[in-house]
Each structure stands twice: as C-alpha cells, then as structure tokens.
C-alpha cells in the first residue's frame, strides 16, 4: 500500500518539477526565473527524500541537507546580484 502511495508521490513531484521548468523557460521576469529555480531545488529535495524512503536507507539525508543549503545560498546570491550588481561588497 505504501508502495502505491510512493509511486503516486513520485509522479506528482515529477510533474511539479516539469511545471516549474516550464516557468523557468517562459520567464518573463528575472525574478520569476529565480523563483522557478528555488522551487525546483525544493522539489529535488522532495524527490531525494522519497528515494531514501523507497529504498529504506538513511544515506540520502546528507545530500538532502546539502542541496537545501546550496539552494538557499544560490537563490540569495542570484537575488543579490540582481539587486546590487555585485554579490560580495
């Protein structure tokens, strides 16, 4: 029963990833693209968590944490670059 729910969740989040990618390509504003990338990072974390759940291992959590941190830092860096034309002042 859990297997079926996991397949549904994989499908839903894969679809969510595709929708976010469409927004990334369409734009139109640069803020929309940054937001789409941020959403894709969060969805990728969800997929990694699901893979760890499906295979019943704990080894994927470190990668989930690292992707969460990298995603946050890259979102802030991109936004700061647009705001200031520079990342570190």
């Amino acid at each position: 029963m859990i297997d079926i729910a996991l397949y549904i969740a994989f499908g839903a989040i894969g679809l969510a990833q595709v929708l976010a990618m469409v927004r990334l390509i369409l734009g139109p504003e640069i803020g929309d693209r940054i937001l789409a990338l941020d959403t894709m990072v969060i969805n990728a974390i969800a997929l990694i968590v699901l893979v760890g759940f499906y295979w019943g291992t704990q080894v994927y959590f470190e990668s989930a944490i690292i992707i969460a941190m990298l995603g946050f830092v890259s979102t802030v860096a991109l936004a700061r670059f647009v705001l200031r034309g520079d990342i570190i002042e």
Partner: peptide, 20 residues
C-alpha cells in the same frame, strides 16, 4: 503514512501549478 504522503505530494504539486 499513506495519507501524509499523498497530502505532501498534493501540496508540492499545487505549489508548482500556482507558479505556472
């Protein structure tokens, strides 16, 4: 577990649908 999984997948999907 199944209910929470489906709720989580649903809200993640709704987030991306709203984005589009």
């Amino acid at each position: 577990i199944v209910v929470i999984l489906i709720i989580g997948a649903f809200f993640t999907l709704v987030g991306s649908v709203g984005l589009l």
